[in-house]
Amino acid sequence: MSKRRQQTYEFADELPTGKPDDTHWVVYTRKKRDGPARWAGYLDAVDVELAMQYAREHYGLDEACTGILIHPHDALHDCEYGIDPIEGGDATGDDGESWIVFTQRRRGMIHIEAGVVRAPDADTALARARAIHADGRITNIRVVRTADCTEVHPDDVPLWRDHDMTYKFARGYSKGVRSKWSNFRSDEDLERYRRGDIKEHF
């Protein structure tokens, strides 16, 4: 094993005192430059600078990514999660500050950016977003004050790497795996096995 890891450890009986959680952040990524921000995951960080650094190096490199948007978890306001699609409404108006709207198509699915509304407070923002986006096909609306969101674009900061990244994706191995299997299995067996992969695993 790694030599550095092969040491004998000695610890005090007691663990040092623990600490509370850092601020929770929600992370969304854009697959396409002009596409919507899609929920990617979470992270904890003490401030926005660190949160964005972490988001870039984790979620920004999970798949080709052309933009990252983050906000503190406390800044989100979700309406009730509908069992059935939620009702619309007739709230109107465009006074107040800007809020980013995210919608969820079905329970269990991710939130995806849907647009922007203006409103003086979160409840009004939710009501106005409902009137626009609750089209009988979504189960939840989330609004976050635009001022609480931080975003980076690849024009400002490189996100995706330029060098070969195929080592960290399944597709980087498909061709090699297929040709190596041909030493062991007929094309027909191989095709059946590959279909099983897709059906059961990927």
Binding site: A40, I110, A170, V177, N183, F184, H201
Partner: peptide
């Protein structure tokens, strides 16, 4: 819901782990 969303995200990466392992086994054998 939150566990399911996380699991879908994780499974995307597990596909790489498995394929890379399959490639190693095939290479060694």
């Amino acid at each position: 819901g939150p566990y399911v969303r996380t699991m879908n995200r994780i499974n995307m990466e597990e596909a790489f782990h498995f394929k890379s392992g399959e490639d190693m086994v095939l290479t060694l054998m």
